[in-house]
Write a protein that binds this DNA or RNA. Sequence first.
DNA 1: ATGCCCACGACACGTGGA
Length: 264
Amino acid sequence: MPLSIAAWNVNSINARLPTALAVLKAVDADVVCLQELKCEDARFPTAEIEDAGYNVATHGQKTYNGVAILSKHRIEDVARGLPGMEGDEQARWIEAVIAAPGGVMRVASLYAPNGNPPGTEKTVYKHRFMDALTAHAQARLALEEPYVIAGDYNIIPRDVDCQDPRAWAGDALILPESRAKYRALANLGYADAYMQMDGAPHQYTFWDYQAGAWNKNNGIRIDHLMCSPQAADRLERVTIHRDARGMEKPSDHVPIIASFRMPG
DNA sequence: ATGCCCACGACACGTGGA
């Protein structure tokens, strides 16, 4: 029985709850990692999400950031906040174990910092966060378990992961220092699910609200599922749910979904 | 060369996003 895991930056769960519920239904993933809830835990629409068939674990924050894990299966061992970033007030990390019938899978929902403008404290913070992520991911490898770090990495890994790299030159999403952080995670042994299954150029997960970016297909691929070797060995499918961007009141991101064979 | 659009807070426009 496969286990599907989606990553989706919802850009405020309360601003587009009807849209979000429709997307959740259409995607029908077993596990959904949400980013940019933009609300405190008490204001998360738990009842509506539970009615849609999901258990809920949130790490919210007023106005900014906020991440959640939704799961049709039991959620265990929830941890909030990225190890190594103690004292950071920004809610960008939640991790848990999903007790699926076919076996357990550890899943993290990640919202990495944007880092713009380059050369500022924002950039320093982005790099510090990514270094903490790499250290944590390395420690987790010792467990030798299926583990997926899913979310908005705010990194364009290759030039072909955007429509026009010249338009992004100098941006924190594409700078070599940012790409090096993504590669450091990959070099530990974490596979980008999209790259393992397909890697086709010019497939995007984000289109800006401005300047008709969606109509011009001027997008970027910045939402990724990074898989431990034990998860990567079970990966059988990846899809990008582009339809979500064409809906009424859409998020500027769409879900990307990976499906894993499970032993049981 | 910059802004375009969108969400938020608590009402006007500044901050942040990517």
